Computed example of a mutant assay.
Amino acid sequence: MADLTLTVGRVYRGKRIRNCHGLVNDRVIKWMGVNSVQFDSPSVAIGRHYPTVSKDKFLAWAGRDVTDELPEGSWADYPPVKLRGEGV
């Protein structure tokens, strides 16, 4: 993982894409501290607190920034277009 910069409000996709209630398990950063990251994701149940993990753990999970690829204000459907074979 070289040079992935974490930014509040950006959405990151894991190295291994997973299905979460019909959506991709992307994570959006809600808050960042010196050594920790708090995020939201389709896997976080409604009414639950946002999980907090270390920056190192988040970077180990994250594959790339997908903010610009997502529909405005929405999560990506699972399976992604790449896995469905539509387009390239």
Rank of each mutant, 00 (worst) to 15 (best):
L4P: 07
L4W: 00
L6I: 10
T7Y: 00
V8H: 07
V8D: 06
G9R: 09
G9Q: 09
R10E: 11
V11E: 01
R13F: 06
R13C: 05
G14E: 10
K15I: 12
R16P: 00
N19I: 05
N19W: 00
C20E: 15
C20G: 14
C20N: 11
H21S: 14
H21N: 15
G22L: 04
L23Y: 14
V24S: 03
V24F: 01
D26A: 10
D26R: 01
R27W: 06
V28W: 02
K30D: 15
K30C: 10
K30Y: 04
K30M: 12
M32C: 03
M32K: 10
G33K: 07
G33S: 14
V34T: 13
S36P: 00
Q38N: 01
D40N: 05
S41I: 00
S41G: 04
S43G: 10
S43L: 04
S43R: 04
S43I: 03
V44R: 12
V44T: 10
A45M: 08
A45L: 08
I46P: 04
I46M: 06
G47W: 04
G47A: 06
H49K: 14
Y50I: 00
Y50T: 07
T52D: 01
T52F: 00
V53C: 11
S54I: 06
K55C: 13
D56V: 13
K57D: 13
K57V: 15
K57F: 12
F58R: 04
L59G: 00
L59H: 01
A60Y: 02
W61D: 10
A62Q: 03
A62R: 04
A62T: 11
D65E: 11
D65W: 05
D65C: 10
V66F: 03
V66S: 07
V66G: 08
T67V: 09
D68I: 03
D68G: 11
E69C: 09
E69K: 12
L70Q: 05
P71T: 07
P71A: 13
E72M: 09
G73L: 02
S74A: 15
A76L: 12
A76E: 15
A76G: 06
D77Q: 10
Y78Q: 14
Y78I: 14
P79A: 09
P80G: 11
P80T: 13
K82W: 15
K82T: 13
K82Y: 14
L83E: 12
L83T: 04
L83Y: 11
R84N: 05
R84M: 13
G85V: 06
E86Q: 11
V88C: 08
